[in-house]
Amino acid sequence: MPRSTLAVLAQLLADQEASIVKEWLETLSTGGQLQSGRIREPELRTQCTSFLQGLRTALAQDSNDTAAPAFAPVKQLLADISKSRAIQGFSPTETAMFVFSLKQPLVNAINRSELFAANSLAGVVWQVTLLLDTLGLYTMDEYQKSREQVIIRQQREISELSTPVVKLWDGVLALPLIGTLDSERTQVVMENLLQSIVEQGAEIAIIDITGVPTVDTLTAQHLLKTVAAARLMGADCIVSGIRPQIAQTMVHLGLELNVVSKATLADAFAVALKRLNRTVVSLKTDPRQQA
């Protein structure tokens, strides 16, 4: 019974595994995969060997349909590789090259081998190319997915990190905002601040926007909503750090922040202390001189 092309290919992969891996590794390192030191030769070698073995197992089941269950282990391996590449900071090209650079060694191996009749070579090479292209694109998809996950996680971390509510004094909280305020982030900020107001029994909250690059209509609305919600709970907000350009933009946009605003956080703090009937005085004696 004549064996199928795929089964013969599997046979070829088994026979020439050592030489294919050697050549593949050379292509990869010429392509610069090892240069950055993000991955070491033994690790890359293991990945190459495992991929070839997975591919061989899939082909031995007489399948070239990458959606078939036979390819599931190979795809899982590629997904893992893509994920680690994405995290290690490989570029999309570098990641895709892992699979694509197998083409040359594999075609060389087919040419060297005597398993195929001369007139069937073109067809075999075509099949191999198609298969590797599909797997390469799959690698890209996985790479993209991992990158997106990284970005989402970072966004969440940034929004959590960048909205600390700090206590300045008994009853006085400050929220130093840094970076652009989008709707989702503002919601997190707003909830954090209001929750802190309850927990700390704070009567005054200072929202400092020195670190906010631009204030558009939406941002201004979010700010106003926060101030309004705080008022409903029984706390007053002071907005500080409105930069000159922002003040101008806001006037041009016809936005009026109908809230108490101060130029700097220090000014706002002074207002807060005054409302609480507190004041800061200098000590009569310099503590450094009493020793």
Binding site: M190, E191, L194, Q195, I197, V198, K225, A228, A229, A230, L232, M233, G234
Partner: peptide, 18 residues
């Protein structure tokens, strides 16, 4: 009016009641 919860305050503002 005392003790309004944060979630209630946020919702009231969104509802349009000041």
């Amino acid at each position: 009016v005392v003790g309004m919860r944060p979630a209630v305050a946020i919702t009231l503002v969104e509802l349009g009641l000041s």
